[in-house]
Design a protein around this nucleic acid. Structure first.
Lengths: 143, 143
DNA sequence: GCTCGAATTGGAATAATTCCAATTAGAAGG
DNA sequence: CCTTCTAATTGGAATTATTCCAATTCGAGC
């Protein structure tokens, strides 16, 4: 179904190795699924997609793999309101825009310096390891 | 236990009336609890606190009241990771800082203009009705 | 006092996620 | 290649926050 996975798979294997973890088929396919369609799927959606290539995988494993990918820094978790957690392989600094009409989530790339500007509002003594910016609203057809 | 509630209660009654809703004792006490200790409690924590004054209240009602307060704009919901939703009566523009060590959430007031600056990164056609900024990290004793 | 819709209540239902014990797989060493 | 030993996976049960629902209660206006 593709021939695109190898360089990704390699960086995956590398990252996993760095954390003392193994590159299993399950982890590779879960990661490929995230890279292949970047629509911020839920764990369930990832499960459905992965099953096409690996029918025997279990949902628990999908959760495990996602957790592993997050913990070695290849994937970000996105939480919106009370909805199920979504997963995002975009590692560039970006915000999320949640379209209230369609429910879709879009990445919004951030200009360099913006995150620093935002962090600069923190009072002395606050050290942020991560900043999340989330928009909610509507998208208009630009026309 | 206090004498501070009336002006709050009045604005509550007003806001509720504006939305065609009634100011019930349950709603008033839930709102007072939020105003009185602004530590971003969960629904369960609100439930516990409200029961001190209104022992017969049910958890379902607490959820209903919180939902009502949110929908008439007096309270904001704060979602962090997968944790239970927290509730915040601070209506000034502010971000949230989630202390990874203590689990506490602090409000960070935002300077005027910052939210507009952040919104300005949105491409044409994106209209944000709300922006949320969340920090995660550690707080150091300033000394 | 009555009426009638709104609000509250308790308990059942739902849904995402985590937990756990048992099995399987794979790398390293012999 | 076989064995070993740990990490990973699996299925199902358990957990937890939240929502749903049907029945009751409340209260403002007549």
């Amino acid at each position: 179904m593709s021939g695109l996975a190898d360089s990704n798979t390699d960086s995956l294997a590398q990252r996993l190795a760095d954390s003392g973890l193994r590159a299993t088929p399950q982890r590779e396919i879960v990661y490929d699924v995230l890279l292949h369609k970047r629509d911020h799927p839920t764990a369930d959606q990832v499960f459905t997609r992965v099953k096409e290539n690996l029918p025997g995988i279990s949902l628990a494993t999908v959760y495990n793999c996602l957790e592993t990918l997050v913990s070695c820094g290849l994937v970000r978790q996105v939480n919106l309101e009370r909805e199920p957690t979504r997963y995002c392989p975009n590692l560039r600094p970006h915000a999320h825009f949640h379209d209230e009409k369609s429910g879709a989530t879009h990445d919004i790339d951030l200009p360099p310096g913006l995150l620093d500007r935002v962090k600069s509002v923190l009072p002395l003594g606050y050290e942020a390891s991560a900043v999340e910016i989330t928009f909610r609203g509507k998208t208009k057809a630009t026309r």
